[in-house]
Amino acid sequence: MLKKLAGALIVLIGVGAVAGWYLSAPVRLDPQAVAQLGPGDPVKGKRIFFAGGCTSCHAKPKAEGDARFELAGGVQLKTPFGTFVAPNISQDKADGIGSWSAEDLANAMMKGVSPSGEHYYPAFPYASYARMKPADIADLYAFLKTLPAVAGKAPDHQLSFPFTVRRGLGLWKRLYLDDQPVVAFPEGAPAEILAGRYLVEGPGHCGECHTPRSFTGGTDKSQWLAGASAAEGEGIVPNITQGEGGIGDWSQSDIASFLETGFTPDFDSTGGSMVEVQKNMAELTPEDRNAIAAYLKAIPPHPNGYPARKPAPAN
């Protein structure tokens, strides 16, 4: 009897291991999505480049002007999981992504899979980019092709076990990788709101910082854009819904104006990582900024997604 049980257990473990291995396998884009890539237009791709905020992580810190287009990587993201380092995505064939095809870029951005078939860590916000249109990735690819090659590999990530096991990310992706919109709107919703949804939930990847995460590191969709404790260091990322603590008293034009200038309605100026993001948003058209604002006015309101501030200690 005991022997039989032990045998069954071994079989179970074996099946579990095989299933785990199967379930954690990298999944590439399906042929249908690849067929939608199209030829790519570098002029349109520049808009996607700024909407996606590529330069904020992949250029040197505080890069301005043309230096924003030198994508040698190296920016560090210090999180509870360890330190992630943004890689070189310049056109250098050896150190960057100069030898990639448009399909390679699409698999990286929408499926989090490298050309050699490894999982990327979701510090690279492919959980958001997964909602992008393949044609926009092709445009971005065409734009990236116009940028300079910069030699030099960025240092490796510094993570501790078990986060060093990339294969495990396959399971994470099964939970959190989804190309469907987060917020559903009724049929006939204004085109502006839908355009804003695409920019915010897809390329803009706003939810990556403005939405709280579960302990497994996935965004909590029930508190979408409700604000969160910052991934790096102390501090918070604000609630950008219309709920309490959020931006309910900002008009659509207040939001659009903030994205253009960095000034809040009461003329505080934005700080922290949002400074870089806002500079990217300033490169978009007024229509795009208005669309983002329209979406933010239309999404479900939530109270703050981060704990209330502890009262200051009495001295």
């Binding site: 000034f263 934005t270 400074v275 501030r309």
Partner: peptide
Amino acid sequence: IGASCGGCHQAYRVKKS
């Protein structure tokens, strides 16, 4: 002027609420 507001807040302010 605006850029210098953001430049300073980027490095020297931590948003807490």
